[in-house]
């Protein structure tokens, strides 16, 4: 046995001869000698340090073991165990999310190549906020409160975007290909320009205002085909299905992007809607008679209360702010405002 021990020792120390090597093989091969070898190695294992710090590739190894366990546990699903499920979902999220993202990315890329279908991105700007956006072609713009903008992740040929709500576009000119905004059935086709489109579903009008360049506004199924020149504004009435064009400073209509809130002879009903959106609050007009009172004002960076007080000065209304209720989850309800005729 002494010889064998010597051979094992030499082998472990990496200073072994051919004879030592062949001895190791035969020790491992035969069951009875394996038991001896086991006894020796057990001592070696025992004498080893109490604990060697995790190896270099510990994390990679751990991941591999986790993956294997996950795979096997999924195969034997059924002997469910809360903790295990929790763990599995933890690994699953950890491992699968990047994988999913990559898969989706490639899938979409591939699908797009395969079918020519387009992948869309969507921006939503919640009430009370406005945000700037940049499109993949270098065009940019502003999205107003409570508005959606849907656009292809990659533009190819003619550029098409969909809008619900209000947005100002600064379109970059491209040699081949127009830029088209689809909004509530209206098509606004532009070459390099700066223009504003307002098309909220709850608003009876769609408005297109042009600052620079030129746009063409059409609507399928109607004879609407209007080319605008700078400082022209088109108002399309959804109810009458008719458009009218007026000239003048369109700056008012696009100034929201710079933080201005501009009303030019806007009926109070619409003022209420726009203020609700702008300040993320709920404004209720309690008397129908008030709804058609025209209103004219410009605000910038004013609080809702200040706007209301100015409104009350220039129109025959009074208003009441209802104290916001505190919800169970610690958030406040939307600010509510009641508008009544002045006594």
């Amino acid at each position: 046995m002494k010889e064998e021990l010597e051979a094992i020792k030499n082998f472990l120390d990496n200073r072994y001869s051919k004879k030592d090597y062949l001895m190791m093989i035969s020790q491992f091969e035969k069951d009875h000698s394996f038991e001896e070898l086991k006894g020796y190695l057990e001592k070696y294992w025992e004498e080893g340090k109490e604990s060697i710090p995790p190896c270099e590739n510990y994390q990679a190894l751990r991941l591999k073991v986790q993956q294997q366990i996950l795979k096997e546990e999924l195969q034997h699903r059924g002997n469910g165990n809360g903790r295990l499920v929790h763990y599995l979902s933890r690994i699953a999220a950890f491992l699968i999310i990047p994988l999913l993202i990559a898969t989706f990315y490639f899938y979409f890329q591939w699908e797009e190549m395969k079918s020519g279908e387009t992948v869309y991105a969507e921006i939503y700007c919640p009430p009370g906020t406005r945000s700037r956006f940049n499109l993949p072609d270098g065009s940019s713009g502003w999205l107003n409160s409570d508005s959606y903008l849907k656009y292809p992740v990659q533009f190819s040929g003619n550029r098409h975007v969909e809008l619900e709500g209000e947005a100002f576009f600064n379109v970059v000119k491209r040699k081949n290909g127009t830029f088209t905004v689809h909004a509530q059935g209206i098509k606004v086709e532009a070459l390099g320009t700066g223009f504003n489109v307002m098309a909220y579903p709850d608003c009876p009008r769609i408005e297109v205002s042009l600052e620079v360049g030129s746009v063409k506004v059409t609507r399928q199924g109607t004879d609407l085909d209007q080319t605008l020149i700078p400082n022209q504004r088109l108002v399309f009435s959804k109810t009458a299905s008719k458009a009218s064009v007026s000239s003048g400073d369109t700056g008012y209509f696009t100034s929201w992007k710079d933080g201005f809130l501009v009303f030019r002879n806007v009926p109070l009903e619409e003022v209420a809607v726009r203020l609700s959106r702008w300040y993320n609050s709920e404004i209720i007009i309690q008397d129908d008679v008030l709804k058609n009172i025209p209103f004219r004002a410009t605000f910038r960076n004013e609080s809702l209360e200040r706007v209301l007080s100015l409104l009350a000065i220039s129109t025959p209304i009074s208003y009441k702010l209802i104290e916001s209720k505190l919800n169970e989850d610690g958030t406040y309800e939307k600010q509510k405002v009641m508008i009544k005729p002045k006594n």
């Binding site: 340090k49 060697i52 995790p54």
Partner: peptide, 8 residues
């Protein structure tokens, strides 16, 4: 134990 086992 992974480090010790790896080393061994």
């Amino acid at each position: 134990y992974s480090g010790t086992l790896n080393h061994f």
